[in-house]
Write a protein that binds this DNA or RNA. Sequence first.
DNA 1: CTGAAAGCGCTTACAG
DNA 2: CTGAAAGCGCTTACAG
Lengths: 341, 341
Amino acid sequence: MNKRRTGSRSTGRTTIEDVARHAGVSAITVSRALRTPDSVSKPLRERIGQAVATLGYVPNRAARTLASARSNSVAVLVPSLSNQVFVDVLAGIRDVLGPRGYQLLIGNNLYDAAEEERLLMAYLEHHPDGLLLTGLQQSPRARAALAGSGVPTVHMMDLMADHSVTSVGFSQPAAGYAMTRHLLERGHRRIAFMAAQLDERTLKRRDGYRQALDEAGHGDYCAEISSPAASSVGLGVELTAQLLAEHPAIDAVFCCNDDLALGALFHCQRRGIPVPQHLAIAGFNDLGFGACSVPALTTVATPRYHIGVRAAELLLARIDNPALDAETLDLGFELQTRESA
Amino acid sequence: MNKRRTGSRSTGRTTIEDVARHAGVSAITVSRALRTPDSVSKPLRERIGQAVATLGYVPNRAARTLASARSNSVAVLVPSLSNQVFVDVLAGIRDVLGPRGYQLLIGNNLYDAAEEERLLMAYLEHHPDGLLLTGLQQSPRARAALAGSGVPTVHMMDLMADHSVTSVGFSQPAAGYAMTRHLLERGHRRIAFMAAQLDERTLKRRDGYRQALDEAGHGDYCAEISSPAASSVGLGVELTAQLLAEHPAIDAVFCCNDDLALGALFHCQRRGIPVPQHLAIAGFNDLGFGACSVPALTTVATPRYHIGVRAAELLLARIDNPALDAETLDLGFELQTRESA
DNA sequence: CTGAAAGCGCTTACAG
DNA sequence: CTGAAAGCGCTTACAG
């Protein structure tokens, strides 16, 4: 009885036609029963439900996307998943977009602009309903593709000064400045800056650090150290050793993230250097372990989860109304003063 | 000259037809030039390339997937992204599948079987070419959908005893057993077990722990503590405090992962409890920071990245030849004996 | 509430 | 090396 198509291109998979035949209705009615159950009478709805179950029917998303011109997906590009910061951002996005029925296409560009461009091009082929990008410094080609696609986009983490695109985050330079001011106010004068990769946000935090030192008249003493390697606790140990060897007189180090700061802490413990008495250590992000390390870590709490939530909400608004003006949303940051600095 | 379609359902987006018209060739030739450039003569290839560039043409993936019945995507389900373990697994997968042109659909099920089922159903609609799952304990419905879909699947982390499915990982009970043996051999007798969520792998490690204690005649003293909360350093601090309050006599604690172990370490530092003299602390996974903590962490090194690599390779083989027999690949583990235990 | 027709934008299979 | 026709599996827009 099962008149299956046997055309040369048939995939043999159960289609909506099979379900329709099994339930004795038309394909369009099955489609309705699946998408808007209320628009189909109860008896039919039930017959169709049973047919779906017995046939093990799985809708074909490619066909739906093609026919409806809506992918129900949002692409998210982050520079790293090893960095807990972006995992938290993703959690916020997911908590907003998941319940709204959007599927997330998550791309990790490994802090590489070329890879970001490649991923963006690949995701654009999905015609996502929206795009969530990290930072503001996309490559020219990426920017052009973005503009050409017309896909609503929100940038996360950094704030666009001229409000030409929608961005959600906090002021990186202000955060770097605030932490450096804190160290200065604690009486430190020879404050070093430590970073792993010098990405967009790191450079901006460093700008804030430099500005604070300049204003305080300590701009001449800038011990800065960084590494092209990915950030890690182990790298923090290494860089601290190197820093102290090259600049034995420093009395504080502002680490660009908490992992590096923990490494600095471990190095000092290992060497018997009292923290913060001989060396004050500050981190960035407030990743959780800083609250219980010994000494507890002074750091900058950043609204990562909240950035994800608000970025997703702004994106939703822009998907509903593409004509919306670009906006800039500053979610701020908070100094967490604990024991290490 | 630009005769654009104006049908009621036109999306207005640039299509392969537009490119073809612009280049003065047929759509099928454009399709070939894009997929297999060598099958098109050089002059045409160049004309088409220019048309693509000037029109800003982006292929529609839904249409390609529908027409070709191949999605060129692989869905990966992991229980967490906060746990660095799975980020490392993903890196291995990506390094194998990326160069082969596969796009990854990454799903995070938050250690929840119902969410895993939901994600699986959603990803099945994409008709992925392959599936990479974490663990072996999918829900009955998920298992049924999996079988019905016929999509090649590889399970990661745990090993399937009866070889009924393809799995890549290491023996969790053996690893739990090995670490407990190590603690026993160091002279510890009152060894506690600490875990966050009791997921599949944690339970198996605990089995190994119990077996080792039983064999050594210490099965009667099983101090075990766990929490439904997500694992974190802070949780490790809390659980250690609780453990020591309830079982002051314990002389070692086997933490189910390194984050908990670091928390245990911090708690001891804070309380002035010498490690390992008064309390030996062991971790699991060897996440990197354990090598530089003070004291350095004794832990079990697990082949996470390699699991991702080999799982992806096995999946590729099964995509090419779905008739392949299921296999079980044990990548082993390694005890990292350092200072803390 | 239900259905017949057309179309979404590609690729396959067949020709030449 | 290039192309005309058909089809992938859905949904839209129009009827009734």
